[in-house]
Design a protein around this nucleic acid. Structure first.
Lengths: 176, 176
DNA sequence: AACAGATACCTGCTCGGACAAGTAAATGCC
DNA sequence: GGCATTTACTTGTCCGAGCAGGTATCTGTT
């Protein structure tokens, strides 16, 4: 503990291409798409750095948060909660287990499954993780009024809903 | 060629957790952050599927677009354009080269560098890629008026700028 | 009870992405 | 010219993420 800010290597400064013209015209075909892409990239970068100083990798923190909140879960449940992938979850849990943040116990009712539960050691992380999340939230919402935040949130959700819709309903019916 | 829509395996339907309560309270610590995360995830998923049907992997299409638009570039230039990583670029270019979409020519002025240029074969992809981008854009902006699009864009950029700012200026001065 | 189909996991592969460390060539400086 | 520094690129490692396939185990049906 107390490695005191491992000093991120990826230089975040200069990430923003200063003024305008971040991308010639590659963006012209989809300005929103491109903005989403860039925002997501930066966001992940920050989250990664925050988490790194805690000792987790991006994605692992979500697993831990679900476990802290809901208690022991099967991998399948975690997959569904995070809308993740079974294979990814297998390996993520393996790494969390190896790191000592998580423990597996065979399910009493299902011999195929095992219950994943957070270890005592992991609880020390909880506050740090939550702190990092709110820190990131502060960063991203800096200078926005409460109203603007609400609006931003609804915009993001609107876009998300569009994609969710597109995934479920329409033309790309394909399978099923 | 003509594998005709390789039929995405990842079932996009059901991705949206139906009604509300997508995440208990893991999101409560950072609703905007979480929304960004989810939107980005869905967005990447769609982009991935679109690209897959073209024969590219996510990220490769950006390299190609830059090359198509700007002509031969050094890897370093591509890295700067995409704000990517030198190591990643090395391997991405290797794969694009192996796939026949790109060719390397030693730089006439710098023995360390090589110029990456799109092959003739790659130009056949260009239209498809651009089409996919606008298709994705249509999906994500479905049902939004022009004004709403503009507003959404500025919201995304505002959030992005916040992170850019945070990266450059403030407390996390650290290095340098 | 027996069987088909769905589930819960695991493993192998490929990819982008990030860090670390190393090599060769170019550049700045004396 | 000689030397340290910077730059361009490469390789190795680890991680999440996706696809493909495989193995137990459970479950619904007959």
């Amino acid at each position: 503990m107390t490695h005191s800010t491992p000093a991120p290597r990826k230089d975040l400064s200069g990430t923003g291409q200063e003024a305008s013209v971040p991308v010639p015209a590659a963006a012209s075909g989809g300005p929103i798409s491109h903005a989403i892409f860039r925002l997501a990239r930066l966001h992940r970068m920050f989250a990664g750095q925050l988490l790194r100083s805690i000792g987790l990798h991006p994605g692992q923190e979500l697993v831990m948060m679900h476990l802290w909140e809901l208690g022991p879960q099967r991998q399948t449940d975690l997959v569904r909660l995070m809308d993740s992938d079974a294979a990814t979850m297998t390996r993520t849990v393996q790494r969390l287990e190896q790191a000592g943040f998580v423990r597996r116990r065979p399910s009493p009712t299902d011999k195929r499954a095992s219950l994943i539960e957070p270890t005592a050691a992991s609880h020390a992380l909880r506050r740090e993780v939550e702190q990092s999340w709110s820190q990131l939230e502060d960063l991203v919402t800096a200078g926005l009024s409460a109203d603007e935040c609400t609006e931003a949130l609804s915009t993001l959700e609107r876009l998300e809903q569009n994609l969710v819709q597109a995934a479920a309903d329409p033309t790309c019916a394909a399978e099923r």
